[in-house]
Simulated scan of single mutants.
Amino acid sequence: MKVDIIGAGICGLTTAIALEKRGFQPRIYEQAKTLKPVGAGIILASNAMQVYRNLGLEEQLNSNGIPLSALNITNDKLKVISKVDLNYFRDKYNLQSIAIHRGKLQEVLLDNLKQTEIHPDHQLKDLTKEKEGYQLKYENGKSVNSSLLLGADGIHSKVRAALFPNSKIRNMKQLCWRGVTEFKLPSIYKSELNEIWGRGDRFAFVQFSEDKIYWYAVKSFEKSENEFSSDKLSLYFEKYPPIVQEIIKATAFDTIHVTVMEDLEPIKKWHDEFACLMGDAAHATTPNMGQGACQSIEDAYTLADCLANQSDSRAFAAYQKLRMSKAHQVVNQSWQIGKISHWKNPIGIAFRNSILKIIPEKLNLVQLEKLFQLERKVS
């Protein structure tokens, strides 16, 4: 049976690989004209790496990324106020969480597709439900019929708009800058992600190759993202530690990606009889937990597993039952973290930081242990 995937991002490509492993021959339709490496950095946490190990990709990804030993939240002086020791999960699962360039991850995924048809320059225009599937119409004038359709087309999903037109995108009123640059991090910061929390803003950096780092900066706005200009980024973070200024100034201005932080307000259903949503199309989250891509990777493996057991729409219901609770928990928790991290009142910030300091690291590990555990045992 043909399975059609809308979107050749991390979710779509991982889904295609997982389906191939189970005997399917997927078709992917991607709006971009070419599948060139894009994006900045990404963290593949333990749950994502468990999936990729099961798909036989762990070694390739490790050779293209940098293993992480810790996730740190710091105050505006770069003093750690909360730490997660990722070596605990390394020992538990016998694998590493890694930082990797999104483009490198994309290359690895593309290299591991053997039987999937990929159709670039196919931007979905609309879809019409038929007796046994959907007719898909594209902006290039082409149309195809699909009996099983997977919407992996991101937060502004055309598939979701057709299935559930009343879904709502939430604006967090935070602007995010992302960059990649050549930079020699001091040895004390290597193999760690450090996120600095200030007043209404934050800055993070992590090494993802021998000579490059990925960083992001986030700032709250009152009415419009136009309140800020990217060419003043160093000014906005001038009170941060000197390394922040050094990183910003080492980055070519025209390579910085700027986005408004948004998520999808949780919806109650992800599928109908012939179509199913995945990844950001189903449960787009703000990136405050580093779990957006990781949750989509879990989606990919779980849905492929369900389709292997039930090659019809019952698989969609089984997938939703397995994945929805956890995915929505990530969405809601990430939203709250984004708000708390941007407090502006000095008294509130002092209280927040003192609470983070006294939370036992073991409690952080217990919470992450639930997050990193896959919903079902997969073969």
Rank of each mutant, 00 (worst) to 15 (best):
I6F: 08
T15I: 11
I17R: 04
R22S: 14
T34S: 11
I42P: 02
I42A: 04
S46N: 14
A48T: 09
A48S: 07
L61I: 13
S69T: 03
T74M: 04
T74F: 03
L78Y: 06
N94M: 10
L95E: 10
L95A: 08
Q106D: 03
E107Y: 00
V108Q: 11
L109M: 10
L113T: 00
L124R: 09
K125C: 13
E130Q: 15
K131D: 12
E132W: 09
G133C: 03
Q135F: 09
Q135S: 05
E139M: 14
V144S: 07
L149K: 01
G154E: 12
V159N: 08
A161N: 15
A162S: 15
N171D: 13
L175E: 02
K184S: 07
S187W: 03
I188S: 12
K190D: 09
K190S: 11
E195T: 12
W197H: 11
Q207I: 12
D211P: 09
W215T: 04
S224I: 14
S224Y: 11
K239G: 11
P241W: 10
P242N: 14
V244C: 05
K249W: 00
T251W: 01
T255A: 01
V260T: 15
D263G: 08
K269N: 15
F274L: 03
C276R: 11
A284K: 12
N288S: 11
M289K: 09
G292P: 05
G292I: 08
E298I: 01
E298D: 07
S311A: 10
S311P: 00
R314V: 05
Q329H: 15
V330E: 10
Q336D: 15
S341W: 07
H342R: 10
N345A: 08
P346Q: 11
P360W: 02
V366C: 08
Q367K: 08
F372K: 11
